[in-house]
Simulated scan of single mutants.
Amino acid sequence: MIAYAIDGLFCAAANAQTKKISGTVVDDEKLPLQGVTVAVKEGVAITQTDVAGKFSINVPAGDTASLVFSFTGYMGQTIVATEGMHVSLVKILLPVTMW
């Protein structure tokens, strides 16, 4: 454990153990989605999918971490993190309104 003081505030930080989770995000037609936000629920790690829909993110080791997937126009999902996970996001269909 490492302890230090900043401007009178006492802070303690442990050498956090993490594991890398990788996966792919696709749409309902199985096409890769680029730019999907992937975040550790109740954590600080955040990333986005690449052009092939792939992502890698560090999650706390030993814990069951959940990842939150969000993308404009699609329903968000929260899923337990597993290595090689494959996530399919569904488009949000908005009702057509006549003016």
Rank of each mutant, 00 (worst) to 15 (best):
Q34Y: 04
E83A: 12
H86I: 03
Q48K: 15
E42F: 09
I92K: 13
A81K: 05
G62R: 05
I21D: 05
L9N: 11
H86Q: 14
G76R: 12
V59L: 04
W99K: 13
S70M: 13
S66M: 06
V87E: 04
F69E: 02
A45Q: 15
A13N: 11
I46S: 09
H86M: 06
K91R: 14
V68Y: 09
V51F: 08
V51W: 06
L94P: 06
N15A: 09
A61S: 15
C11P: 00
S88L: 11
L67A: 04
T47Y: 07
T72K: 09
T72E: 09
T72W: 00
S56M: 09
K20W: 05
V96I: 09
H86V: 02
A39G: 01
G62V: 07
I2A: 12
A81L: 07
S88C: 11
G53D: 02
T18V: 07
V38Q: 03
T49Y: 00
Q34M: 04
S22E: 14
H86K: 15
M75I: 09
A61F: 10
Q34N: 14
I21F: 05
G43N: 07
Q77Y: 05
T72C: 01
T97L: 13
M85V: 09
E42S: 13
V40A: 11
H86G: 03
D28P: 01
V40Y: 10
Q34E: 15
A81I: 06
A5M: 12
L93S: 13
A39R: 06
A45Y: 13
D27K: 04
G84Y: 08
M85D: 08
K30L: 08
C11R: 10
A52L: 12
P60N: 05
M1E: 13
V59I: 15
A3T: 14
V59W: 07
E29D: 15
F55R: 02
I21V: 15
L67N: 03
A39L: 04
I46G: 00
Q77R: 15
T72R: 05
Q48C: 13
Y74G: 02
A3P: 01
N58K: 15
A52C: 03
M85S: 04
S56A: 13
V36Q: 03
F55Q: 04
I57D: 04
W99T: 10
A45H: 14
A65V: 03
M85T: 08
T82H: 08
V25L: 05
N15I: 12
S88A: 11
L94C: 06
T49W: 01
L33D: 02
I2C: 04
L67H: 07
E83F: 02
D28H: 14
A16R: 12
N58T: 08
I92T: 08
A3V: 10
M75K: 14
T37M: 11
K19A: 03
E83V: 04
